[in-house]
């Protein structure tokens, strides 16, 4: 579905992402994790053609995403950024209807099909009762669902999200994650996202990519990725890891930061 080969991105000659390679299959939920400033968001922007790579290529169904007409990409891939803002009088329905823009010529108005797709996106995200409320008056979780609904109305096969649960309380976080899972299961959408909450990433992802200082550290299913060693190496924390009784997926509980001495010891061990 989406694959990246040897991606590098540089800001002012400093590499933010270097030589990153990934391959994502249709229907997968993949999350990208890593510490702050590790290049996760940059990576998402590059694979969704919002930013140019200085090296390497991203393929969307076999075509270079940067060479495809941007409108064609918009019909196949939707990306939801971290900070979104809508005009103060924009209702949920107005916002969701913008998702139809890539499917329209500049002279076309929305037709019956567009309206039913908008209806569908609103009902999948459970926003029927808020349909005519202004997006800016909604709570954080509802607002995030409205933006997801807009992305759904684009009718793409791939949905990319940058920290979709940041700033939300735990129940709204779960609500958004459950929604994404439902979209993935029922409509076979491929989902790629950056997440900060490792337990959520573990619970909801088929596969995870770990990125640190712009480099791919490891990738694999949650039980391969969420390990004591990874948490020590990448996040510099000491943690206890157990398995979720229902799903068998790994859960971690942070015990504390590694002391400087430990870090040094660890480094010397690696060397």
């Amino acid at each position: 579905m989406i694959s990246a080969k040897g991606l590098s991105v540089a800001y002012d000659k400093k590499n933010v992402v270097s030589n990153f390679t990934m391959d994502i299959k249709e229907g997968e939920i993949v999350s990208i994790i890593g510490p702050n400033g590790s290049g996760k968001s940059t990576l998402l922007k590059v694979i969704s053609r919002l930013m140019n790579a200085s090296n390497g290529v991203t393929y969307l169904e076999g075509n270079d995403v940067h060479r495809l007409p941007t409108k064609e990409v918009a019909k196949k891939l939707a990306i939801l950024g971290q900070h979104n803002h809508s005009p103060s009088d924009c209702t949920v329905r107005d916002l969701v209807a913008y998702g139809r823009v890539p499917h329209k010529q500049w002279y076309e108005f929305s037709n019956y099909d567009d309206n039913s797709i908008v209806d569908w996106a609103i009902s999948v995200t459970g926003l029927q009762e808020f349909e005519h409320r202004c997006v800016t008056t909604l709570s954080g979780g509802e607002r995030q669902r409205a933006w997801v609904a807009m992305a759904l109305a684009q009718k793409t096969k791939v949905l990319i999200l940058d920290e979709p649960t940041t700033y939300l309380d735990v129940s709204h976080q779960l609500e958004v994650m459950e929604l994404l899972k439902k979209i993935n299961e029922e409509y076979k959408m491929t989902i790629i996202m950056v997440l900060h909450d490792l337990n959520q990433a573990s619970k909801y992802s088929d596969r995870m990519y770990v990125i640190n200082k712009g480099k791919l550290v490891m990738q694999g299913c949650p039980s391969e990725v969420i390990t004591k060693k990874m948490l020590r190496d990448v996040y510099k924390i000491d943690a206890h890891i157990s398995a979720d009784q229902v799903s068998g997926k790994p859960l971690f509980f942070p015990l504390g930061l590694l002391k400087n001495k430990d870090t040094k010891e660890m480094k010397s061990k690696i060397v």
Binding site: K45, L50, A78, G81, H83, H85, S86, V101, W106
Partner: peptide, 23 residues
């Protein structure tokens, strides 16, 4: 008049507009 859709998309921000296929 023909660019009203583009103008609307631009109001959502650069990245959102680009996501919607606006050059």
């Amino acid at each position: 008049v023909l660019s009203v859709n583009v103008a609307n998309s631009l109001q959502l921000g650069d990245e959102a507009a680009k996501n919607l296929g606006v050059r």
